[in-house]
Design a protein around this nucleic acid. Structure first.
Lengths: 265, 265
DNA sequence: CGGTCCCTTGAATATCATCAACGTAAGTGG
DNA sequence: CCACTTACGTTGATGATATTCAAGGGACCG
C-alpha cells in the first residue's frame, strides 16, 4: 500500500494504496463490461485515482459537497442518506462491492446525499471529468455507464414501493434484496451479516427502530430466520417471498405474466 | 401533421406529425443544453424520430417491452407504474412537458415500468442507439444526458422519503412538488389541475384512495387549498410547507445548514 | 333511465408510532 | 478487577393514524 501522489487526492489523512488495478480487481466484472479485454482495461488507469480506504463511520462524501468523483466500492459496506424537508433523515441505499456511488450528484455538481461506511471499506475513486472524456473514445464503456445509472434508477424506483407496503413486507423485501445481491456476488444468499444498525434499517424502510426490532423478533419466532445480533440466516426463503407477495386476506394474486409485445426496432 | 415515413416508427396506427423540430419546441430548454446553438440543435434531427401523439389512457410503453427509444414529453401528462412482488402496482412518477421517460429500461433493454397518458399528450421519440452514437461527437450533450439521468435518480430518491412520512406529509409533498415543477415551466405554482385520479395519487403516495380523499378534504376544510374536482389552488403554500416539515409535536427541527466543505478538485 | 366511473364519507379494526423501561455488551478509568 | 458510561437492541403499554368494508353521491354516457 505505497503512498501514491501522482494523482491529486482530496485529503491526505488516510494512507493511500497503490493506484487501482482493475484487471486484478475482485469486482471487475461488476464495474466494467464483461467483454472488455485487458488492453482496454489498462487504458482506464488514466481515469482512476487511487483506491481510498474509508474507516467505519467515516464520511466518504457529504451532502452539499462539490462533486468531482464517482466511487466504486471495492469491498466493505456503506450507506447513503438524505434529509427530507422536515430535516428527518432517511437512508437511500446500502452499498457493497461493485456498487457505483455518487451518481445523484451529477445533475447539480453537488452531492445531495451523504455516504458513510458501515465497516472498514475501500472504494475506487473515478474522476468524473476524466470518465466523461474517456467515454467519448469508448462506446462500450459509455453504454456500460448508462446501464449503471439506469440500474440505480430501477433500484430507487423499487425502493419507492416501500411506501405502499406494511412493515412486515418492507422488512422481508429488504432481507430478500440483500440476499439476492450477495448471491450475485457469489456469497451465500442464506447467511449474511446485517452490517447496518437497526436504526439504519428503520430509516431505510420508513419504520421506527422499535418496529424493526419487533418484526425481526417475529420473523425469528415464526421460524423464518435465525438471528444472532446482526448475523441472520434465512431459514425459509419461500415463505419470506410469500410475505412480500400478500398481506390482504383473500386476494393475493400472482403477478401477471410479463407482456412481451415485440417491437419492430 | 403530415405523415412522415422517413424514420421507422413502431406502430402505424397513430397519424404522424412532421419530424420534431427542436429549435422551435416549446420545451427545448428543458430537453437540451441551454447554450446549444441552433446549428448544433439541427444536427439532432438525425437522432429524433417523429413526434408521437398518445391519447388519454393509451399506453406509451409497457413493462417487458423491448426498449429502443427514450421519450421526451412535448406536452400533456403521463404516469409510469410498476408492480411490486405481490402484484400490487404503484406509480413511480408523473411526467409533464420536458420530462425524459424510459431511462429505467436502459439497464436491461426492456421496460420495467408501464407508461400511460393521463390526457392527450405528445412525446418526442429519441432512438437510444442513435443517441448513443451522437453523444460520442457531442460532449456537452453527453453531459446533459448524464445530468438528466442523475436528475431522475434524485427525483426517485426523493420519492423514497414517502415511506417514512405520514399521509398528510406525503400529500403536501406531492402538491408542492407539482407546484414547483409547474413554476419551473412558467406556469402558475398556485393553481393547477391534478391530471391524475385519486387512485393514481394514492398509488403514488402508498396510501389508499380513501385516505387521499379524506386528506384532500382536510386540506380544504383547513383552508390550505381550494378544491374543485381535479382543480386545485394552493391557498397557503407556507403552511403546506410547514406540514412537510413537522409532524412530531415538540421537536420540529429546522433542516441544518448545508455543509460546503470545499473539496480541492 | 340505468349504468359506470370516480369520488366522498362513515364506522370498525389493524397497524404502527410513541413513550418508557430494561437488558446486554463493549469500553473507560479508577 | 470493578464501577460507570455509552451504544445498541428488546419489550411492553397506549394512542394516533391509516386501512378495510360499506354505503352513497354526482357526473357522464349510451
Amino acid at each position: 500500500m505505497a503512498n501514491n501522489t501522482s494523482f491529486q487526492c482530496r485529503t491526505l489523512e488516510v494512507p493511500r494504496p497503490a493506484p487501482t488495478r482493475c484487471s486484478r480487481c475482485a469486482v471487475r466484472n461488476l464495474c466494467l463490461p464483461m467483454d472488455m479485454h485487458d488492453g482496454e482495461v489498462d487504458r482506464l488507469m488514466g481515469i482512476l485515482g487511487c483506491a481510498r480506504r474509508v474507516a467505519r463511520d467515516e464520511v466518504l462524501f457529504r451532502r452539499g459537497e462539490a462533486f468531482c468523483t464517482l466511487y466504486a466500492v471495492r469491498f466493505g459496506h456503506l450507506k447513503t442518506s438524505r434529509r427530507d424537508h422536515r430535516g428527518h433523515s432517511y437512508i437511500t441505499g446500502f452499498h457493497m462491492a461493485g456498487d457505483l456511488m455518487g451518481m445523484e450528484a451529477i445533475c447539480t455538481g453537488r452531492h445531495s446525499s451523504t455516504a458513510v461506511a458501515l465497516e472498514d471499506s475501500e472504494v475506487c475513486e473515478i474522476s468524473f471529468a476524466r470518465l466523461q472524456a474517456a467515454l467519448l473514445d469508448m462506446p462500450e464503456l459509455m453504454l456500460h455507464f448508462h446501464r449503471a445509472m439506469s440500474r440505480e434508477i430501477v433500484r430507487d424506483q423499487s425502493a419507492m414501493a416501500f411506501a405502499g407496503m406494511q412493515g412486515i413486507e418492507r422488512l422481508a423485501s429488504l432481507l430478500l434484496d440483500l440476499s439476492a445481491r450477495y448471491a450475485r456476488r457469489g456469497l451465500s444468499p442464506r447467511r449474511f451479516r446485517l452490517h447496518m444498525s437497526r436504526a439504519d434499517i428503520s430509516e431505510h424502510l420508513g419504520l421506527t427502530l422499535e418496529s424493526v426490532s419487533r418484526l425481526l423478533a417475529r420473523f425469528r419466532d415464526e421460524g423464518l430466520i435465525a438471528l444472532d445480533k446482526r448475523d441472520v440466516e434465512l431459514l425459509d426463503i419461500g415463505r419470506l417471498q410469500a410475505l412480500t407477495m400478500k398481506t390482504p386476506p383473500g386476494r393475493g394474486r400472482a403477478p401477471p405474466p410479463v407482456s412481451l409485445r415485440t417491437a419492430s426496432c
